[in-house]
Nucleic acid binder design. Structure first.
Lengths: 333, 333
DNA sequence: TTGTATGCGTTATCAA
DNA sequence: TTGATAACGCATACAA
């Protein structure tokens, strides 16, 4: 069941079979037919491993992300996959849980496997793991580039998103806006917070420290952080660095007997499918996650094809989706 | 940067380097150290493609599923991945959207790539695509085996789940229980419906045809189906074949001015994270999706290791998670 | 237009 | 304990 058997069956050489397979070089029409017939008859499928060996590529890319279970990522993954298959590439899925050891393990495995490129969504890629790696292999950083490593970046504009969310709340007359952050040191979260602070500054406000609590992007941490905040002060609004935490916080707020949005207006981030299903429906900053994934993959495939291309940075603008959790009735702005 | 350079650097033959790499055969301690040093110095990483070539395996498995965007699948995917990496395997992610052409494309690509096995979650695997395939390659069918193809199966017990959900509603005194199905011909949905009918039968009931509508497992179809049902009859309960549709239906029910659960009690399936976040919180049949994924992958890895193993069928029991959408206050049963 | 022969980077067999 | 070398299955340069 190799190219040899096909060649024998068709009464030609392996070179001719190979030419037929790859439509390369000249093959007489009649010979071509004989080869095709042999391939059909033997159910021959070329061996991609051998092909990779001689061609020096695997037509495979690695997708490294924190956790596909976080509802922000599935759409992004689909974008990556769609862009990949459009060009005949396959995608290897790697969930790291933001664990540096897991990241390192996957990096090592992917390298051995000779993937052609990497779409890398990392909480905080440690330069030391990654430095040499990015030199050997095309890598596109999604959302969070590692410090000190140049390279292609595709990301949502978290700074703008944080700003939009906060400005919206301020424009509603809110003055004591709580903030629940993501994991410490995570640029995504820090940028959203920077936007939060800029909006305050613009309005001549300074958010009190007691209004901020730290989460880890998971539902439970939203509950915990909100309880913490309510335990020490009285906000009239909340901006959470993602929807999962916002939904957790929402539960706590309502359980505490506060009305949303009357007492506390709530805004999340990511606009996951379930934001609109919450009661009240959650106002959220939407990122074009499918597009981000799609673009990231296209960028890395471009670079695979042309290593010498200039570095690309693509930033996608978020939009604020206003719903009942911040205003009586919903609308998009 | 190949094994040759390492051999030269260490002053040994490639065979010795290979022995060090694979801890196979005898190597003098001192030689071993020299080789290790050379590997370090040259940052050598063995080429997995070449290794695959000679070993005849790729330590890679394909994960074929309908749509990772459906919240039921991310946990399953994590289970698969965790089982895979535990044994040094990588996972290739393939979303098919239940499209037979897409399935066929992925099947072809995965085969060329020489994956060692397949975890196959298919809406309705077409035997013709798949038949020859499953003979060449270890495949474990998740949830839905193709008719006429023997093989390992790991699945949730949908029949039991449908039964539990419906019996629960009947025990609550409901008699006009609507049902929203999944895609036609999909065994997962059909089994849940069988359970729905058995529970009726046991109670001496026969559900009217007007109480059933067809969906496609997506949120919007739940809305549509529920509107359809409400347009022609008056149910006092709803069992939807998955949570996404149940949530869609819930929106329509509440919008129609019905109270939940007083007027219409609602039960979904899958117990996705957001079931508990709905208002009222959604009663749902929970499947151990992580465990199903994990087990499926373990089964296929077992078969890769030992082709002659007897066929395995593993069925996981679902549990009913009762929440406010069917009863005043929540509890698990 | 077709065939021969080499090499891709390993592993594994056999000799030494 | 180590080394030389033949596969693995294909693509391709070169010859014919």
């Amino acid at each position: 069941m190799g190219i040899r058997e096909v060649a024998r069956e068709a009464g030609v050489s392996v070179a001719t079979v190979s030419r037929v397979l790859n439509r390369s070089g000249y093959v007489k029409a009649e010979t071509y037919q004989r080869v095709i017939a042999a391939i059909r008859k033997l159910h021959y499928v070329p061996n991609g491993v051998a092909r990779s060996m001689v061609r020096g590529n695997t037509r495979t890319i690695g997708l490294i992300l924190p956790d596909i279970t976080n509802p922000y990522f599935p759409m992004l993954a689909r974008g990556v996959e769609d862009a990949a298959t459009a060009q005949g590439y396959l995608v290897i899925l790697c969930n790291t849980d933001n664990n540096p050891d897991t990241e390192a393990m996957y990096l090592a495995m992917l390298r051995e496997k000779c993937v052609d490129g990497l779409v890398y969504v990392s909480a905080a890629p440690r330069a030391d793991h990654v430095q040499e790696f990015a030199q050997v292999l095309p890598v596109v950083w999604v959302d969070r580039p590692p410090v000190g490593v140049a390279g292609d970046v595709v990301a949502g504009d978290d700074f703008l998103g944080g700003y939009l969310a906060t400005r919206h709340l301020i424009s509603l007359g809110r003055r004591r806006i709580a903030f629940i952050s993501g994991p410490a040191g995570l640029m995504t979260s820090e940028e959203r917070e920077r936007g939060y602070r800029l909006a305050h500054k613009e309005a001549g406000l300074v958010p009190e420290d007691t209004l901020t609590a730290h989460g880890d992007f998971k539902f439970e941490s939203g509950r915990r952080a909100m309880a913490e905040i309510l335990g020490r002060t009285r906000p009239d609004a909340l901006f959470a660095a993602n929807d999962l935490m916002a939904l957790g916080a929402l539960e706590v707020i309502l359980a505490a007997g506060c009305r949303v949005p009357e007492d506390i207006a709530v805004v999340g981030y990511d606009n996951i499918v379930f934001a609109r299903l919450a009661k009240p429906a959650l106002t959220s900053v939407e990122q074009p996650s499918y597009l981000i994934g799609l673009t990231a993959c296209e960028v890395v495939l471009e670079r695979i094809a042309r290593r010498e291309l200039p570095v690309q940075k693509k930033l996608f603008k978020p939009t604020l989706v206003v719903r009942a959790s911040s205003q009586g009735e919903g609308q998009t702005q």
